[in-house]
C-alpha cells in the first residue's frame, strides 16, 4: 500500500534539487550525467509502479522505452509530424504495447512473468533491428527537440534540457503516486498481496493488471521520448534486455516498492559508474561488488534501509 510519507517527499525533493544544482553549477558533462539520471529515474519509477506495487517484475521496460523513442523519432524524422503529435503517438504506442503484454501475461507469475516480458521485449527488439524502414541497426537520426521558445525555454541549451528532464521526473513521480493513492492503485496493491481474495470480491484481476502495466509503459514511453530528443538519434540498442536489467538493478538498489527510492537509486548508480569509470576501465567490477555488498547489508535498498533505520529509532524512542 502506497503512502506519500514526508520522508518520500523529502527524498524526491532533495535528490531533484541536488541534481538541479549539480547541473547548474557543473560544466557540460555534469549536465549529460543529470540527463542520464533523469531518464533512468523515470524508467525506474515506471518499473517500480508495476513491480513494487503490482508484483509484475518486467524485463521489457527497456523495450517499451525504445518503442517510445522510436515512435517519436519515426513521427518527426520520417513522418515529418510536429512534436506534439509525435509525443501523443509515442505515448499511445508505448501504452498499447504495455496493455498487450500486461493482458497476455496477467496470469503468469514470478520468474515466469519475468521471462514472458523478456520474450516480448526481445521480439520488439528483433522487429526494430530488422526493420529497414526504421533504419535497422543503423538507427535513425534527425530527430527534433521540443520547441518551447514560446515560454522562454531553449531546449537546445544543455542546462535547460537537463532541468526539463528533471521536471519530467517529478511529473512522472507525481502521476505514479496519484494513481497509487487512487482506488485503482489500492486495488492494484490488493491484487499484489492476495490475488485470489480480490477475485473473490468480484474483481477482474487480469484487466486491472493490464491497465496498470499499460500506465507504467506510458511513463516508460515518456522517458523514451526524452531519450530520442536527448541524443537526437535512436538505435535498436535502446530496446535490448540489458537496458531493462539496468532499470531493475536501479529499482532494487533504491528500494523496491518505495517509488521514491528508485529515483535515488538512479542517481547513485549513474554517478558511481561515471566516478569509478574515470579511474578504471574495470568499473563493472566495482559496481558488481557494490551491488553484492548492498544486498548483503540488508537488501532493503538504499531508501528502504534509511526508512528502516528511522523506523527503528522511532520505535526505540517509543519504548523509552
Amino acid at each position: 500500500m502506497f503512502h506519500q510519507t514526508p520522508l518520500k517527499t523529502f527524498t524526491v525533493a532533495a535528490v531533484i534539487a541536488a541534481l538541479a544544482l549539480y547541473a547548474i553549477l557543473g560544466g557540460y558533462f555534469p549536465r549529460e550525467i543529470v540527463i542520464e539520471i533523469a531518464l533512468l529515474a523515470i524508467l525506474a519509477v515506471s518499473l517500480d509502479f508495476v513491480a513494487g506495487y503490482g508484483g509484475m517484475v518486467s524485463l521489457c521496460h527497456g523495450a517499451i522505452y525504445g518503442i517510445g523513442a522510436y515512435a517519436f523519432a519515426g513521427m518527426t524524422a520520417i513522418g515529418g509530424y510536429d512534436t506534439v503529435t509525435a509525443t501523443l503517438v509515442a505515448l499511445a504506442a508505448a501504452a498499447a504495447f504495455g496493455l498487450f503484454v500486461g493482458a497476455v501475461a496477467a496470469n503468469i507469475t514470478g520468474i515466469f512473468f519475468i521471462m514472458a516480458t523478456l520474450a516480448f521485449g526481445q521480439m520488439a527488439y528483433v522487429v526494430v533491428f530488422e526493420s529497414r524502414a526504421l533504419g535497422g541497426d543503423d538507427g535513425l537520426s534527425g530527430i527534433a527537440r521540443y520547441d518551447l521558445s514560446a515560454i522562454g525555454i531553449d531546449m537546445n541549451d544543455s542546462l535547460q534540457f537537463a532541468l526539463f528532464c528533471l521536471a519530467v521526473v517529478v511529473i512522472a513521480y507525481a502521476a505514479a503516486a496519484y494513481v497509487l493513492r487512487s482506488t485503482f492503485g489500492r486495488t492494484l496493491s490488493g491484487i499484489h498481496s492476495n490475488e485470489d481474495r480480490m477475485r473473490a470480491l468480484g474483481l477482474t484481476a487480469w484487466r486491472h493488471k493490464a491497465v496498470a502495466f499499460s500506465f507504467s509503459s506510458m511513463l516508460a514511453g515518456a522517458a523514451g521520448i526524452l531519450a530520442a530528443q536527448h541524443t537526437q538519434f535512436v538505435s535498436p540498442e535502446l530496446l535490448v534486455w540489458t537496458v531493462s536489467g539496468e532499470v531493475l538493478i536501479v529499482v532494487i538498489l533504491g528500494g523496491l516498492g518505495t517509488l521514491a527510492g528508485p529515483i535515488a537509486g538512479a542517481a547513485l548508480l549513474v554517478l558511481l559508474k561515471h566516478k569509478i569509470g574515470a579511474y578504471t576501465e574495470h568499473w563493472h567490477l566495482v559496481i558488481g561488488l557494490f551491488l553484492v555488498a548492498a544486498v548483503m547489508a540488508g537488501g532493503r535498498g538504499v531508501y528502504g534501509q534509511i526508512e528502516y533505520w528511522l523506523r527503528q529509532r522511532a520505535g526505540r524512542r517509543a519504548d523509552a
Partner: peptide, 15 residues
C-alpha cells in the same frame, strides 16, 4: 527473496 537474489547474482556476473 528472489529480487535480492537476482540483484546479487547480477552483481556477481559483473565481478
Amino acid at each position: 527473496g528472489p529480487m535480492n537474489q537476482v540483484l546479487v547474482t547480477f552483481g556477481l556476473i559483473f565481478v
